[in-house]
Write a protein that binds this DNA or RNA. Structure first.
Lengths: 211, 211
DNA sequence: TTAAAAATATACTGGCCAGTATCCATAGAT
DNA sequence: ATCTATGGATACTGGCCAGTATATTTTTAA
């Protein structure tokens, strides 16, 4: 069998290297977008951080907007994976929700730059990209909503409208990306634990007077 | 008594008109910053909305950054006034906190553009302005923290660390500005009521298992 | 060892926009 | 009715930066 279909011997490694370069560009771009904002960050500056020149970037990304899309997509994708990863663990809704908040909060802190850029620069996205990304975010909120619904049906959670509560939980988590500062007053672990406690208080039954 | 100190007859009205013009410029600029982002919004576009030209703006504001500063300052000032206004009402910490969340949430929804621009464009501020504004925000969080402390001491609130809880409450409120959409799924009133319920659940004693 | 191709750099352009120098019109004052 | 001051418009500039045409180096293939 001739290997006409198989690519040349060295392609495998080359592709890995190309992927690595793409990733490095993305990292530095994210960093700069996070620090300076998307519009103020120039591609020349991104290139300089990598000790390359601007055309180098253009041979790995179509244009600046393409780079922003990837930053945002990475951020939302990481959050979504963390959520899905927590959901596969069996357990009560309460246990699952705790796991979800813990994992997602951790991922958000670890990848703060991606998510924070997404939240702040969403409106600089190409409309088509923006739609795709909002879709993913919507999916995130729906999975959360389903979990809350499940907990409500099981009598574990005391909430009126799961889909609305999901928005608040999702907001609380997003807020971490905007507010948390590495080396600030509170450690990552403290923030994660706080987040878990706050969310559980929001959904578990309490004595809170309604109305 | 000679009226040497009193300005010329027409000055009073003139100043009112000048103030009005400043306000209108601010409104349109805020709108555009909100829709397009600070960097993408051009002063020519702001001028066009007012049916004037760019130099008109420059005779009321030093430059584009000065305009951004005023937008952000307005946003944070409105929130702070709402908070202080609620605090003067006598009552238990619980009653006061409900009033605070209600008023601040309402103000945030009504003046969403200012606050949302502040949250998203903070890093475009001149460092000096940024510091002054952070100061106000810090004051906001402190007043909130004091209220939570008071409620904790009175045995009304079940919270570990008032200043940390204040951050979460403050974050929940800020999130409204970023997330709320007029004419969206939920009405302003629903959002305000939700915010009150969420915050009260976060601070009032419940059965939530800790740890 | 060399030719072809792939990867990266150099050097440029074109548009956009903040900010400004200058000109014009309108409204009080006399 | 004319002078003057003020408020605003016209028309420009200078810098910055995304994006690109072209040159150069490096790698691969034979």
């Amino acid at each position: 069998m001739p290997d006409t279909k198989r690519p040349p011997r060295s392609t495998q490694l080359k592709e890995e290297i190309a992927a690595y370069k793409r990733r490095r560009i993305l990292e530095e771009a994210t960093d700069l977008f996070f620090i300076q904002g998307y519009d103020c960050a120039t591609l020349d500056a991104v290139a300089e951080r990598l000790d390359v020149t601007k055309p180098f970037i253009y041979s790995y990304y179509k244009n600046k907007g393409d780079l922003l899309r990837e930053v945002c997509q990475t951020g939302i994708r990481l959050s979504l994976f963390a959520l899905e990863g927590a959901l596969v663990i069996e357990g009560t809704a309460t246990e699952q929700l705790k796991a979800v908040v813990e994992r997602v909060a951790r991922i958000i802190i670890e990848n703060q730059r991606y998510i924070s850029v997404y939240l702040r620069e969403e409106k600089n996205l190409d409309p088509k990209d923006a739609r795709a990304i909002r879709e993913m975010r919507h999916h995130f909120d729906e999975l959360l909503s389903d979990l809350l619904e499940k907990g409500k049906k099981a009598g574990e959670f005391d909430i009126a409208d799961p889909s609305r509560t999901a928005i608040w939980v999702s907001g609380l988590l997003s807020w971490i990306a905007l507010w948390y500062r590495e080396g600030g007053h509170w450690s990552a672990t403290e923030v994660v634990m706080d987040a878990i406690n706050m969310v559980m208080k929001m959904v578990l039954p309490g004595n809170a007077a309604h109305g």
